[in-house]
Design a protein around this nucleic acid. Structure first.
Length: 237
DNA sequence: GCGACAG
DNA sequence: ATCTTGTCGC
């Protein structure tokens, strides 16, 4: 995967303008092939926020076993501004994706997809840049509201904003707060919910996200421990 | 003008 | 996000 990021020196005003310009390119219908590998991406910060650390974990969608991992660091250049998260995190995320040996067929992002004031959360932005299906999986609400949901795993309620369904509040585990799911790119809301449930076992967050989170926020390891040999490369050994 | 506000 | 002690529950 060879991604060429455009100049990334945006002012908040320019960032908002770019979101308005790119939002029409987001595809919220299923345009994905057979999904064999699903990835989770997450970002953490070091040195008082001056360094951004992105991590990606690629899992086999059937066994949920880790197939590949990657980490990337780069200086933080954009502040945290609600609604403009992608401008702060995407450069490091793309760096991490470039290091992967096994590319995913679908990516679960930490943050919103279309459940965003301008319908262009980080999952949408990343999906457009790398042209891969993405889903937004957020731990808290940015915009919109929803009815109370039953305390039963898998139950969900539509997330409404300005009369529009922008995602869902999904109970991935009994007794915990729901997670907020919305399409990022090249996937429908229903299919997104299905894949999030498929990647979720006994915890609130999907396994993909959990693995990525450990790498993004855990000890600052530089080398990754031995991994199982990817099926794609078995023949090479 | 006053709150709300992904990570 | 990050910092950071104790506490509740399986």
């Amino acid at each position: 995967m060879n991604i060429a990021l455009p100049d990334w020196s945006f002012s908040p005003e320019q960032a908002i303008a770019l979101q308005q310009e790119l939002r029409s390119q987001v595809i919220v219908t299923d345009q994905l092939g057979k999904v064999r590998y699903v990835a989770g991406v997450d970002v953490g910060f070091e040195a008082e926020g001056t360094i951004t650390r992105a991590a990606v974990a690629v899992l086999d969608v059937d066994t949920l076993q880790v197939i590949d991992l990657a980490i990337a660091r780069r200086p933080t250049t954009f502040p945290y501004i609600p609604g403009l998260l992608s401008f702060r995190e995407i450069p490091a995320v793309v760096d991490a994706l470039e290091k992967l040996t096994v590319l995913p067929d679908l990516i679960l992002c930490d943050g919103q997809g279309t459940a965003h004031p301008r319908r262009f959360g980080i999952a949408c932005h990343l999906g457009l840049i790398i042209n891969l299906p993405t889903i937004g999986v957020a731990k808290s609400l940015l915009v919109g509201k929803h009815a109370d949901l039953a305390d039963e795993k898998g139950h969900h309620q539509p997330l409404i904003h300005k009369g529009e369904t922008i995602g869902v509040a999904l109970r991935t585990r009994v007794g915990t707060k729901p997670v907020y799911i919305s399409p990022g790119h090249r996937i429908s809301l229903n299919t997104a919910i299905s894949y999030v449930m498929r990647c979720t076992t006994k915890y609130r967050l999907p396994e993909t996200t959990r693995h990525a989170h450990k790498l993004a926020s855990g000890p600052a390891i530089d080398a990754i421990a031995v991994l199982p040999i990817p099926p794609d490369q078995l023949s090479l050994f």
